[in-house]
């Protein structure tokens, strides 16, 4: 046996590795749109090998089940119970949120069963620049960091305007930020929470704006800004109905791409689906909602759907439409590895 063959065998026997190709038959949302009828997806070695529409009348593997890409939490606080806020300094560009990441077992389990396969950790809102975010992925064991330095985290929200710390005015904060946020490969995330911060944040080019507008005027300032996208993030279970409706309208009408964050949700990663349920109930269409749940705003825009041959197999098989909380994740695969199966 050659050294290379031995390494491959070891890899195949490693915990969580897939023993054989996986075939899934279900109704499918591919990240861009619903596919007609029943779709067959074949996964091998962590990658989607093929996708084909089955002949009319073909039965899905599980009646009523829906296959989607893994959900993307664009503003996660998972495992950061004490480390999300670093209010001492206005600008701390060198801090790494990943250094504060310390999930307990229940958080890792919550992530695995939530259907979220990419969680983008972010800092809190009290520092104007709180350092770099990190990417986290679920696994069958503990959730793990997959990129320790993934986009800067900034805030022009009210909590960043500390009286004893300059600069305190959003326009000045914005000017300093705009110099520090240039030349980054991953877009920075900038929080806003009211009309003043929305106006300042909306004028920053090439960043992702994080928050939910509190007035139609603030929503317009965000929608008409030159940002790279909008991350609607909040404690969704207890957000005012007016803000939920504004957010639902943005999902329908915003020119920029929209993603969702669980933010400060006490429900953890489930917050993403609480958001989906609330936003659909408030008028967002299911298809746009699913796009917002599954797209990657940290990556360059593409017209390719997330589920396509050659793409990493981050997949979730749901008992029904995932925008309804009445549905649950039946099976979750991260890079082709089954990390959760509902009992």
């Amino acid at each position: 046996m050659t050294r290379r063959a031995a390494l491959l065998l070891l890899a195949a026997l490693a915990p969580g590795a897939m023993a054989s190709p996986l075939m899934i038959r279900a109704r499918m949302f591919d990240g861009s749109a619903w596919r007609d009828g029943v779709t067959e997806v074949v996964v091998d070695a962590g990658v989607i090998r093929s996708i084909r529409t089955l002949p009319e009348g073909s039965a899905p593997g599980v009646p009523g089940a829906v296959l989607t890409p893994g959900l993307v939490d664009h503003d996660s606080a998972l495992g950061l119970s004490a480390g999300r806020e670093e209010p001492q300094e206005a600008f701390s560009p060198d801090l790494l949120v990943a250094d504060a990441f310390s999930p307990d077992a229940s958080e890792s389990r919550a992530l695995a069963r939530s259907g979220v396969t990419t969680a983008w950790l972010g800092g809190g809102g009290t520092s104007v620049l709180s350092g770099s975010g990190a990417l986290v992925a679920p696994s069958r064991e503990a959730a793990r960091v997959t990129d320790r330095r993934h986009g800067l985290c900034a805030s022009l929200a009210t909590s960043a305007r500390l009286a004893e710390r300059a600069p305190t005015a959003p326009p000045e904060q914005r000017d300093q930020l705009s110099r520090m946020l240039s030349d980054t490969s991953v877009p920075a995330r900038v929080r806003f929470d009211d009309g003043t911060s929305a106006a300042a944040a909306g004028s920053l080019p090439g960043v992702l704006l994080v928050g939910v507008p509190d007035t139609p005027e603030a929503a317009r300032q965000i929608e008409h800004g030159a940002s790279a996208g909008i991350i609607l993030s909040a404690d969704w279970a207890h957000l005012s109905q007016d803000r939920v409706r504004l957010a639902a309208r943005m999902i329908e009408e915003a020119q920029q791409p929209v993603g969702i964050g669980s933010g400060s949700s006490t429900a953890g990663p489930l917050g993403l689906r609480i958001a989906a349920h609330a936003l659909v109930q408030a008028g967002a269409s299911r298809e746009r909602m699913l796009r917002a749940l599954t797209r990657r705003l940290d990556q360059p825009a593409t017209s390719n759907p997330a589920l396509r041959a050659g793409a990493p197999a981050d997949l979730v098989l749901w008992s029904g439409d995932p925008t309804s909380l009445a549905s649950r994740a039946l099976v979750v695969w991260a890079s082709g590895v089954e990390i959760h199966r509902a009992p």
């Binding site: 279970a237 109905q241 609480i274 609330a278 008992s319 309804s324 909380l325 009445a326 549905s327 649950r328």
Partner: peptide
């Protein structure tokens, strides 16, 4: 406002 969502979640559980 979240009542129906909460009931739906119990149904999924």
């Amino acid at each position: 406002f979240s009542l129906r969502a909460a009931a739906a979640l119990l149904a999924s559980q």
